[in-house]
Design a protein around this nucleic acid. Structure first.
Length: 480
RNA sequence: CGGGGCGUGGCGCAGCCCGGUAGCGCGCACGGUUUGGGUCCGUGAGGUCCCCGGUUCGAAUCCGGGCGCCCCGACCA
C-alpha cells in the first residue's frame, strides 16, 4: 500500500473510488475482464449485508434455497420481454466435457426462468401458496463497462422469488420487500433511500411494475440500490405456474422477484467515504473498534500490551468487534492513517500515559482531529464504546440525509431542470411524458427518471417536458 | 462497436525521439534507529522490457503484424 494520500473526491470522484476500493483492501483486480476478487475485508462487509437482510427475510417467512448456475438457453427465451432485456449481456456455455452441447447453457443473469420452471412443479394447490423463496447466488451479466462492486461481470446477490394466489398478495409482497430493503439501507448501512416506482422504460424485463430504492452518492449521482418486481402473471404463464383454487378451478399464480447485490458495498463506500478513505457504519464494519498500542521502548511494551490485551477481551466480551493492531514495523501515525483509510468507526489509543492513568483515548472516524477525540476511563470502556458506536451510526445517517436533501430541488421549468441536473443535483418535477419524452430528457440532460417517489406532494401540476397536466412527480438524476 | 491513450520487477513510472551493461519511487526481506498523526539510515532479493516476425555486429528503443488493458460514449443491479 502506498503511503501517499488518495485523490480528493472533489478532484476526481471516480478515481477516488477506485483508489479507496483497492487501498482499503476491499477488492483486487482479477485476471478476467470485468470481474474482481473480493478480498476478506470487502467480503466481510458483504457478509454484514447478508446477515442484515437474511435475518429480515426469515422474519417475514422466506426460506433459502439454491438453484443451478446454468440455465437451458430455451428457458430464457420463453418470456418475450425477458429475452429482449437480457440477451445482449448473456454468457453462454456451448461446450462441456469436450463436446459441443446439444443445447447451449446460459450462465444465469437472474433466475426467474429456472425458478419459475421449478415453481410450476412445486405448486399444485392454493394450499401451496404463498411460496416464499430466496437464494444467495452469483450471477453473470456481460456488461460493457464495469467498475468494482458497482457493476461487475459477475456479482453476488440475493434474489427472492415468490408465488401468490392473487395480484394483491403479490403486490403486498413486492412492497413489503422494498420496505425491508429500505429498512436495511437506513438502519444498517446508514444510507437514506427514496422508495418509488420505476418508469416503464426502467422497468425490469418482464415485470408489471418495478419498485426501487434510490440513494445519492457523494458525487450526487443516483445509485439504484435494490429493486422489487411485481411480475404479474407473465412468468406464471411462460412457465405454467398454476394452482387449483378452492373452487376447483385452475388459475395462474402471481409472482414477484426482488434483489440486492454486492453493489451495496459500493453504495456504502460512496455514501460515507471521505478524502481520508472509508467511513463504515458500525453495524456493517468488520472491525468496529481498532486498538493501536503505543510504546516508546521495548521496556514499555509488556506494560502497554498487558493493558491492551485486557481491554481487548473486555470489549470483545461486550459483543463489540474489536481488533488489536499488533504490527511491529509501523509507527502509530502510520496505523492511524491506515485504519482511517479502512474506515474503522472507533480507534482506541493506549500508551504508557494511559496505562498509568487508567485511561484510554477514543477517536471517532466520522469526526477527525481533536474534536473527535475523548479520554475515557478503562473501567467500563465497553459502555463508552457502545454509546459512541451508536452515535456514529446515527451521525453517518444524518450526514448522508442532510447531504442528499441539500441536493434535491423542485423544478417547474425544463431549463431549470437542466440546470439542476448539470450541477449534479437531483430534480423533482411533475411528469406525464411518453417513453420518447423520457429518452429525450436523457439525451438532452443526461438524467433519467430514477423513480416516481411514493412520497408525493399531492395535487396535480404540469409536466416539466410536455407542459400537459400531470398527476405525479418524478425524480430525475444522473445515475450509475 | 466509434474516439483517445497505454503495455518495462508486486504497484506507480522513467528510459524509446537519437540502438550499445535495464533504472527510479513505493512495497518486500534483513540489521539498526524511531514510535502520542504517514520515522530515518544501511544492506539485499526480485525483470520472458506484451507476443511474433524483420532490419542490424547488437533492439526495451527502429519497421511490420498481432494480442491485451485503461479512459470517454451507446447498454446496464
Amino acid at each position: 500500500m502506498s503511503e501517499q494520500a488518495v485523490t480528493a473526491q472533489s478532484e476526481d470522484f471516480s478515481r477516488w473510488y477506485n483508489e479507496i476500493v483497492y487501498r482499503a483492501d476491499l477488492a483486487a483486480p482479477s485476471p478476467v475482464r470485468g470481474c474482481v476478487i473480493i478480498k476478506p475485508y470487502g467480503y466481510e462487509i458483504w457478509e454484514g449485508i447478508k446477515g442484515g437482510l437474511d435475518r429480515r427475510f426469515k422474519a417475514t417467512g422466506h426460506q433459502n434455497a439454491y438453484f443451478p448456475l446454468f440455465i437451458p438457453e430455451s428457458y430464457i427465451k420463453r418470456e418475450a420481454q425477458h429475452v429482449e432485456g437480457f440477451s445482449p449481456e448473456l454468457a453462454v456455455v456451448t461446450h462441456a466435457g469436450g463436446k459441443e452441447l446439444e443445447e447451449p447453457l446460459v450462465v444465469r443473469p437472474t433466475s426467474e426462468t429456472v425458478i419459475g420452471e421449478a415453481f410450476s412443479d412445486w405448486i399444485q394447490s392454493y394450499r401451496d401458496l404463498p411460496l416464499l423463496i430466496n437464494q444467495w447466488a452469483n450471477v453473470v451479466r456481460w456488461e460493457l463497462r464495469t467498475r468494482p462492486f458497482l457493476r461487475t461481470a459477475e456479482f453476488l446477490w440475493q434474489e427472492g422469488h415468490t408465488a401468490h394466489a392473487t395480484h394483491d398478495e403479490a403486490e403486498e409482497e413486492t412492497l413489503q420487500m422494498l420496505d425491508i430493503y429500505a429498512d436495511f439501507a437506513v438502519e444498517d448501512a446508514a444510507i437514506p433511500v427514496i422508495k418509488g416506482e420505476k418508469s416503464r422504460m426502467e422497468r425490469f424485463a418482464g415485470a408489471l411494475r418495478t419498485y426501487t430504492i434510490e440513494a445519492m452518492m457523494r458525487d450526487k449521482r443516483a445509485l439504484q440500490s435494490g429493486t422489487s418486481h411485481n411480475l404479474g402473471q407473465n412468468f406464471a404463464k411462460a412457465f405454467d405456474i398454476r394452482y387449483l383454487a378452492e373452487n376447483n378451478a385452475q388459475a395462474y399464480c402471481w409472482t414477484t422477484s426482488w434483489g440486492l447485490s454486492t453493489r451495496m458495498v459500493g453504495a456504502v463506500v460512496m455514501t460515507h467515504g471521505d478524502d481520508k478513505g472509508l467511513r463504515l457504519p458500525p453495524k456493517l464494519a468488520p472491525y468496529q473498534v481498532v486498538i493501536v498500542p503505543i510504546y516508546r521502548k521495548d521496556d514499555q511494551k509488556p506494560l502497554v500490551m498487558e493493558t491492551v490485551n485486557r481491554l481487548e477481551s473486555q470489549i470483545s466480551a461486550a459483543g463489540i468487534r474489536v481488533h488489536v493492531d499488533r504490527r511491529e514495523g509501523q509507527s502509530p501515525g502510520f496505523k492511524f492513517n491506515d485504519w482511517e483509510m479502512r474506515g474503522v468507526p472507533v480507534r482506541v489509543e493506549i500508551g504508557p500515559k494511559d496505562v498509568q492513568n487508567n485511561n484510554a483515548v477514543l477517536a471517532r472516524r466520522d469526526i477527525l482531529g481533536r474534536e473527535g477525540k475523548q479520554f475515557v476511563s478503562q473501567d467500563g470502556i465497553e459502555d463508552a464504546l457502545e454509546a459512541l458506536l451508536n452515535a456514529i451510526q446515527a451521525n453517518l445517517l444524518e450526514d448522508a440525509r442532510a447531504f442528499r436533501d441539500r441536493h434535491i430541488s423542485d423544478v417547474a421549468a425544463y431549463d431549470e431542470m437542466r440546470q439542476v441536473v448539470e450541477g449534479g443535483g437531483w430534480a423533482r418535477a411533475w411528469w406525464n411524458g411518453s417513453d420518447e419524452d423520457e429518452l429525450a430528457v436523457k439525451d438532452e440532460t443526461g438524467a433519467t427518471i430514477r423513480c416516481f417517489p411514493f412520497e408525493q406532494p399531492g395535487g396535480t401540476g404540469f409536466c416539466v417536458k410536455t407542459g400537459q397536466p400531470a398527476q405525479k412527480v418524478a425524480l430525475f438524476a444522473k445515475a450509475y
